[in-house]
Write a protein that binds this DNA or RNA. Structure first.
Lengths: 352, 352
DNA sequence: GTGAAAGCGCTAACAT
DNA sequence: ATGTTAGCGCTTTCAC
């Protein structure tokens, strides 16, 4: 027994037939044992399990699903923003946890916002999942319209959207109330006495971006702030751009006394830009999305904290409810956000 | 056409037989078209594709794999630390990218270090992957010994380890040279004049933790520093513990002038502890693993930066080489790390 | 260039 | 309590 090749375990992948032969039973009996079905004697179970162990047999669930009545593959597909993003990472983690607890495997695929042809990649990934007959798809789509998923949905694939609402398709969605969150953030700054507040946002092609901008605008309008005192910078996707955007804001006749960075990466870039400009102790900043080191900055970064873990858990819960036969009307589920004050968002305006 | 049920697309999932019937050809011809096989006339291809479009047919790859000669499922399984950890997230992302480019789907599963019975969960997840006949497994295992994977390996499942070396199993591994990296970090502090350096590490059950501690100890020994000046605190897994550990260090007759936090979460906890103790501008700190906001801290956090993206890419490369038939000897692949100076690691000792 | 028949590994339905 | 037969949706083999 030098190299394992003379070991009792065979090198070829065993099938149920091999196990049945070795145990001296029929294949259906092996199937019963492997699937914990009733009506098998303890003695037979023992003999089958012994053979399974000797051969290191693992049930082939794909083959079984071919014939099985419910035709469930016990897999779901996840299409999210990159797992590199802490938000997506937590959503991913929560869904995975929920799925594995229910014996369901999770396919993961990332969608980078900045890809060349995002819709093409999105459709390719989803098609790959459909060809593998996933029971459901949990999606953060980049495309403008998801009606192309209608056929797959009618054919039985369950769908739940995360961090977005579906367009051209009726399906459950789980997300933060982006508009209300942006409003809260803005009102937080207003409550601390600010009147001139700048908004830094992501690309407006992005639906969540538009929602956040709407929330900001609504809050400013309600506070009777003229649009001239609510400057907007969209599409800040780079540190250099952040510096430039801040420079533009500071060059205004009446520069803003506070900044709302409505996306997590933009928040980081803005922390740096304010620092570089030497105004980080003077201009208030509130960011969107929390991250581990936010409280270690100086000043600590005040953020609108989403609850990605709860978003993921709830999305998974909806998914498994649908898979389990829930046919209630599709709905949008909002997960609450909270403003976490850490210092940067509580800097008062100079006048105060 | 009010609700789509009267639409041309059927609600039942179509099979090749349906497509063949609608296109007026045999199933084998449909199979040829779906798999881009030669010897089909353009006219036939067009008719088949038309039927495919009308029925919204998607090939069932699981069914096909049952009979296909190579029996490849075009899926791999990933068992990593939680995608919540930025290191794992980047490794995950790189592997995913590489796999999808090769038409391979990726199953993802997280393994939390702090689970109750980590090996049980590990084996459950891996078994789930094997039952789905993945072509390969890319693993960051928690178990002490992986010889239980030998049978699956002999049966054809390729395996590549990430961030760990396999024990009791011969397989490729891709990881940072933890020992050398810890040595570099320590030498960086020594080069800045420090003689009394504390080491804060993860649980010593963890193999990478032991390697890092070894690297630290070797560097200190080479510098002829007595062990009394190289205090070690292991298993700091909490902010409170970090405070306590720092307090113990500062209470020493000759407190350390520098600290090496040899794990990413511990680095964060230590930043906070030093800040709380009011010594963050006085005691040097070097962390392990980079993170997005490290340069935004004050002082900026000097770290040993691993290259998780390259680790992931290389692991995927090895995996696909093995799947493609590479039978060369299994090897350990070290991916270089770099010390990124940002301020905290360059604070001189009081005497200098 | 095309199709008919066999069978991949398993489960359903029906024996016994 | 156990085994036998058919067939899931596809690819292989081989015939035309």
């Amino acid at each position: 027994m030098i190299d394992g090749s003379s070991h009792a375990t065979a090198d070829a992948r065993p099938t149920m037939k091999h196990v049945a032969a070795l145990a001296g039973v029929g294949v259906k009996t092996v199937s019963r044992v492997m699937n914990n079905e009733p009506n098998v004697s303890q003695a037979t179970i023992a003999r089958v399990m012994d053979a399974v162990g000797r051969l290191n047999y693992e049930l082939d669930v794909n083959a079984g699903n071919l014939k099985r009545a419910d035709r469930r593959t016990m897999t779901i597909g996840l299409v999210l923003g990159s797992v590199t993003n802490p938000f997506s990472g937590l959503v991913h983690r929560a869904i995975e946890e929920y799925a594995w607890e229910r014996g369901t495997a999770v396919y993961a695929a990332s969608l980078d916002d900045d890809a060349t042809r995002p819709e093409a990649r999105e459709e390719t990934l989803i098609s790959a999942f459909l060809r593998r007959r996933v029971d459901g798809l949990i999606l953060t789509t980049t495309s403008e319209n998801q009606s192309y998923l209608g056929a797959a949905q009618r054919q039985g694939t369950k769908m739940v959207f995360v961090d977005r609402q579906p367009v051209g398709l009726v399906a459950d969605a789980v997300l933060s109330d982006n508009r209300a969150s942006a409003r809260s953030a803005t009102e937080h700054l207003l409550a601390h006495g600010h009147r001139r507040i700048a908004y830094l946002g992501d690309k407006p092609q992005n639906w969540t971006s538009r929602e956040r901008l709407d929330g900001f605008s609504a809050a400013m309008r309600d506070a009777a702030i003229p649009a001239a005192d609510a400057p907007i910078e969209n599409g800040v996707s780079d540190v250099v751009e952040a510096d430039a955007a801040l420079a533009r804001l500071l060059a205004r006749p009446h520069p803003p006394t506070a900044v709302f960075a409505a996306q997590n990466l933009i928040s980081l870039r803005m922390v740096k830009a304010l620092r570089t400009a030497g105004v980080h102790q003077r201009i208030a900043l509130i960011g969107f999305d929390d991250f581990p080191a936010a409280d270690l900055l100086d000043p600590g970064l005040t953020v609108v904290s989403q609850n990605p873990t709860e978003i993921g858990r709830l999305a998974a819960e909806r998914m498994f409810a649908r898979i389990g036969g829930d046919t209630s009307a599709a709905a949008v589920h909002h997960v609450p956000t909270t403003v976490v004050p850490r210092g940067s968002g509580e800097i008062p305006p100079p006048s105060a």
